[in-house]
Amino acid sequence: MRTLIVEDDLISRRLLQKMLSPFGECHVAVNGKEAVEAFSLALVEREPYDLVCLDIMMPEMDGQECLKALRRIEAEMKVPPKQEAKIFMTTALDSMKNVMEAYHRGGCTAYLVKPIALEKLHETLREYKLIA
């Protein structure tokens, strides 16, 4: 499993990296702009990400905007729906409204409430068949 972690907060980024690295390669981006670049490059190099963990609240390009950009890139590159990356939005409980918006507008696969709990993360990875 190839994962892109998009998170501006150092501690959350480190935590996700530690939790996800046993399942494969993990790359990190600290804002939406970096994420879009890494995501495009991975598709061009035919090594797409299976999972993107995307923080909702980030400076510059926030998670919502970034989500739209990532799905637009997949559409432009004609990625078949079954091969699209799973995108988990990560959010604190007080920004749940933003997550629901991401759901309703489409494109978000699941969400994880921060601080991330290891067990919940594993459960969600299993639910979307990213791990056995």
């Binding site: 501690i11 480190r14 935590l15 530690k18 991330i116 290891l118």
Partner: peptide, 21 residues
């Protein structure tokens, strides 16, 4: 500890990062 699956080393690492940032 519960949230981190009882991983003491990871907890200590997170604490150290907190003191740094």
């Amino acid at each position: 500890l519960r949230r981190l699956g009882n991983d003491h080393a990871l907890m200590e690492e997170i604490f150290a990062l907190f003191l740094e940032v």
